[in-house]
Amino acid sequence: MFRTVTPSHPAYPRFVRASAWYDLVVTAGFATPWTYGLVHSALSRLGEEIGAGALPALDPVETLYANLMGSVVVVWALLRLLRPLPAHGLYDGLARTLFALWQAYALAQGAPYWLWLFLVAEVAFGVVQLVPWRFVRGAVSAPRSAGS
């Protein structure tokens, strides 16, 4: 029999942790200029090998944005590993929705097709973390004031 998993279900924190591990593995290389240079080179070679084309040459602004994204995602992943709270799963699912939208936009603009692999992962982790919230009534409500 299929059991409904809600954010209060004991399995839900495992989903939150799994998505955090994925983020840490995939984005840690983006967090510094030196590691991003290595990641950029590896992705470029992969693109050439599979016929998707190399990435454009690195520039300082691209590196800055990659480092900002990598740094924030690494910190966010560490928070979810240490404290996999249901609310963290909700917000991570919302962030993944945004990431998936921007990845789909990039693909529509001609980004290399290997980006689909990351898009699929974003959607999968987003669904796993957001769907349980649909079973929670009033899950995200305004806090009550002291006089209420």
Score class of each variant (00 low, 15 high):
residue 74 V to M: 03
residue 6 T to R: 11
residue 75 V to I: 10
residue 16 V to Q: 00
residue 7 P to Q: 07
residue 85 L to Y: 13
residue 12 Y to T: 03
residue 64 L to G: 08
residue 35 T to I: 00
residue 107 L to V: 02
residue 55 L to I: 11
residue 75 V to C: 07
residue 148 S to C: 04
residue 128 V to T: 04
residue 2 F to V: 14
residue 122 E to P: 03
residue 100 A to V: 04
residue 130 L to E: 10
residue 121 A to Q: 09
residue 136 V to Q: 15
residue 140 V to A: 15
residue 99 F to L: 06
residue 42 A to H: 10
residue 118 F to I: 03
residue 36 Y to K: 04
residue 42 A to C: 01
residue 22 Y to K: 05
residue 49 E to K: 07
residue 104 A to V: 02
residue 74 V to D: 09
residue 123 V to L: 04
residue 54 A to M: 05
residue 56 P to F: 05
residue 145 S to I: 00
residue 77 A to I: 09
residue 138 G to F: 13
residue 50 I to V: 15
residue 5 V to G: 00
residue 14 R to K: 13
residue 110 G to V: 11
residue 73 V to G: 09
residue 69 M to W: 15
residue 37 G to Q: 10
residue 93 G to W: 07
residue 38 L to R: 13
residue 40 H to Y: 00
residue 58 L to A: 02
residue 33 P to I: 01
residue 52 A to T: 13
residue 73 V to E: 08
residue 28 A to Y: 07
residue 139 A to H: 12
residue 141 S to R: 15
residue 71 S to G: 15
residue 104 A to F: 15
residue 28 A to C: 12
residue 117 L to C: 13
residue 83 R to H: 13
residue 24 L to Q: 06
residue 14 R to F: 15
residue 38 L to G: 02
residue 87 A to F: 03
residue 46 L to R: 12
residue 109 Q to Y: 04
residue 112 P to D: 08
residue 30 F to Q: 08
residue 133 W to C: 07
residue 60 P to T: 10
residue 91 Y to S: 00
residue 19 S to D: 01
residue 1 M to E: 07
residue 39 V to G: 01
residue 94 L to R: 02
residue 64 L to P: 01
residue 108 A to E: 10
residue 80 R to M: 01
residue 71 S to E: 12
residue 51 G to W: 08
residue 109 Q to N: 14
residue 33 P to C: 06
residue 14 R to H: 15
residue 20 A to W: 00
residue 52 A to Y: 13
residue 53 G to M: 10
residue 108 A to L: 12
residue 117 L to I: 12
residue 22 Y to R: 00
residue 100 A to W: 01
residue 115 L to K: 12
residue 28 A to G: 06
residue 119 L to C: 08
residue 139 A to C: 08
residue 112 P to N: 06
residue 89 G to K: 04
residue 100 A to G: 05
residue 79 L to E: 13
residue 122 E to M: 01
residue 143 P to V: 06
residue 19 S to G: 13
residue 57 A to H: 07
residue 72 V to P: 00
residue 59 D to E: 02
residue 90 L to Y: 11
residue 8 S to K: 08
residue 47 G to E: 11
residue 50 I to Y: 10
residue 95 A to T: 01
residue 112 P to W: 10
residue 39 V to E: 11
residue 31 A to Q: 04
residue 89 G to S: 00
residue 1 M to C: 05
residue 147 G to P: 05
residue 60 P to F: 08
residue 61 V to K: 09
